[in-house]
Design a protein around this nucleic acid. Structure first.
Length: 531
RNA sequence: GCCCCUAUAGCUCAACGGAUAGAGCGCUAGUCUUCGGAACUAGAAAUGGGGGUUCGAUUCCCUCUGGGGGCACCA
């Protein structure tokens, strides 16, 4: 539809203004305009020609038979038959409507969540899971085969500190008088883990058991975090353990490679990553500490070597905003290992801020005063949680009011979408008529065609998100669609005395149901047939 | 000090440089003999301040002010 209009416009441009090829768009017209599509071609041409936009628009409209509107838009209205084609396509494609084969045969690997095992995932970080998962699903709808991966940071100084904190609580239980470790972890959860640890490992734990305690603690937290993700419908294909990267010698090998390529230098007894890069010039990072231990970045080098040399067409890292300083270094690694930087996407999401009333709650894992993702999930439920977390652009800081969480959970927009889906189901069940062989041409009122038009936006929305990763457009679209449907429902009676008309309208609401279901599923929300 | 985000309605968020700045929640007033009222209809209500670029700026640039997060031989 859109392409046809675009071609027609291009022809007219060639005819009226040869040697003036321009980039222009044909978009769905805004809701308040009585048209289906609209183009900015005249506005852009006018600039180039140094003429008034309305004049150019008028000239073009005469050729195209379209309407014009200030300040110079060309508006197009489609014949109902055109919409019937799309209508039929939805009914035929069903679950496949919205998918495409743009990336058929390609492979992507997406790393997300990768929470540190030093504490439960807090609400601030909770965006990473649903966001990453939607991106995986969106990539799949364009034909990618996706590997979902997670880096488990199971070694390092922070993990040691957690172990020491737990040891402290273990000793405390034995009525000893241990000293709280410097930089130890505050909060309730280390105490819980200490209890579990003494149950499992024995009552009289002491310094000698530290490595056991560490292993127990990170496994405890790690599996708990994976459990929370699972509750949100997120499961990983590959867990990469940092310890494995080290033990297997992969870190050593990758670091060697960096050295051989002369991208590292010695300074103060440590080995630094020092690519010849303007941006990284004064942001060099330590790879091997002067005590001989590798840093986390060394593991990252090894990990990304694997990502870049394993035959994937697309590599995606999804990181919290506190890692943004890390991004250029990761991007520099594409050059080290010969990967096309265009095919490596690092997506950064901003944190969710928690408010209690007007007060912003400062959250820090070490201070232990954070609200966990699990708490919120249990409170508002999976569907509301996902819809809420995905409703805002990832680069905005969202505010979350815990006090209002329960209140708003049953007023969450997701229910409006779910309700539309369930309502349709109920109509379909009630009528018992067959949707097959419906006479689609009986659908011609503006309410009906308007609904089809809204449905028709879905495939290109999915395509757009697969390129821009603007995931938040999806929940907004679904909410708009649900509202459109509810409005339609109030005005148009689906089940009537006229069997043929009923059949056609049932086909229409079925089409709406298909799109609602496909959209919800991409978000990881199960469409409900009853509520 | 430097870097990355950010400031839109009472609250939480939208808006390829374009048309009357849109939603949800809350508020006000309605719809209820019809397919599910978790719905619909109508209304009040907003671009932080100051410059600039443009036919046109919420959007781009500069600046001021206020938020969040980074700038470690932490992960």
């Amino acid at each position: 539809m859109r392409e046809e209009i675009k071609e027609k416009i291009e022809k007219v441009v060639k005819k009226l203004y040869p040697e003036n090829p321009v980039e222009f768009s044909v978009d769905f017209a805004p809701a308040n305009i009585d048209a289906d599509f609209s183009s900015n071609i005249a506005l852009i041409l006018a600039k180039k020609l140094g003429r008034k936009p309305m004049e150019v628009a008028e000239e073009m409209a005469r050729e195209l038979g379209s309407q014009i509107a200030a300040p110079g838009f060309l508006n197009f209205k489609l014949q109902p038959e055109k919409w019937h084609v799309e209508f039929e396509r939805i009914l035929n494609e069903q679950r496949k409507y919205g998918t495409n084969e743009l990336n058929k045969g390609k492979k992507a690997r997406v790393e997300y969540v990768s929470a540190n095992p030093t504490g439960p995932i807090h609400i601030g970080n909770a965006r990473g899971g649903p966001y990453g998962e939607v991106i995986c699903k969106i990539l799949e709808t364009t034909g990618y085969k996706v590997l979902r991966e997670y880096l488990h940071n199971d070694v390092g100084g922070q993990v040691e500190k957690l172990g020491k904190t737990i040891l402290y609580w273990c000793e405390k239980q034995q009525d000893l008088e241990p000293e709280f470790p410097e930089g130890g972890y505050q909060g309730e959860y280390p105490q819980e883990i200490a209890k579990a640890a003494s149950k499992k490992l024995g009552e009289n734990l002491n310094e000698k058991n530290l490595s056991e305690i560490v292993a127990f603690a990170i496994e405890y937290i790690f599996s708990e975090n994976l459990e929370v993700m699972k509750k949100m419908g997120i499961e990983f294909d590959l867990i990469v353990k940092e310890s494995e990267l080290q033990i297997s010698g992969k870190v050593e090998k990758a670091v060697e490679e960096v050295k051989n390529k002369k991208l590292a230098k010695e300074k103060d007894g440590a080995l630094w990553f020092a690519p010849n890069d303007d941006f990284l010039q004064d942001r060099e990072a330590v790879i091997i500490k002067s005590d001989g231990h590798p840093t986390y970045f060394a593991s990252d080098i090894a990990y990304h070597k694997e990502k870049f040399t394993s035959g994937y067409d697309l590599v995606v890292d999804i990181l919290g905003s506190n890692h943004h300083g890390h991004v250029p270094k990761l991007q520099a690694l594409t050059r080290v290992f010969g990967f096309d930087p265009e095919h490596f996407k690092v997506l950064v999401y901003q944190y969710v801020r928690v408010k209690k009333g007007d007060e912003v709650v400062k959250m820090a894992k070490r201070a232990g005063n954070f609200i966990t993702a699990k708490e919120v999930l249990d409170l508002v439920g999976k569907d509301s949680m996902i819809f809420f977390l995905l409703s805002t652009a990832v680069n905005t800081h969202m505010d979350f009011d815990l006090d209002l969480a329960r209140d708003t959970s049953d007023k969450n927009p997701v229910y409006k979408v779910q309700y539309a889906h369930a309502r349709i189901q109920s109509i379909l069940v009630k009528s018992k008529l067959d949707v097959e062989n419906a006479k689609l041409e009986l659908i011609h009122s503006s309410e009906e065609l308007g609904l089809i038009r809204e449905l028709a936006k879905f495939p290109e929305l999915v395509e757009e998100i697969s390129e821009t990763f603007n995931v938040h457009h999806l929940p907004h679209y679904l909410l708009g669609l649900a509202e459109r449907f509810h409005g339609f429902y109030e005005k148009v009676k689906v089940i009537t005395d006229d069997e043929e008309l009923t059949r056609a309208r049932l086909a229409l609401v079925r089409a709406a149901q298909i799109v609602l279901a496909n959209g919800l599923q991409v978000m990881g929300i199960e469409p409900l047939e009853k509520m």
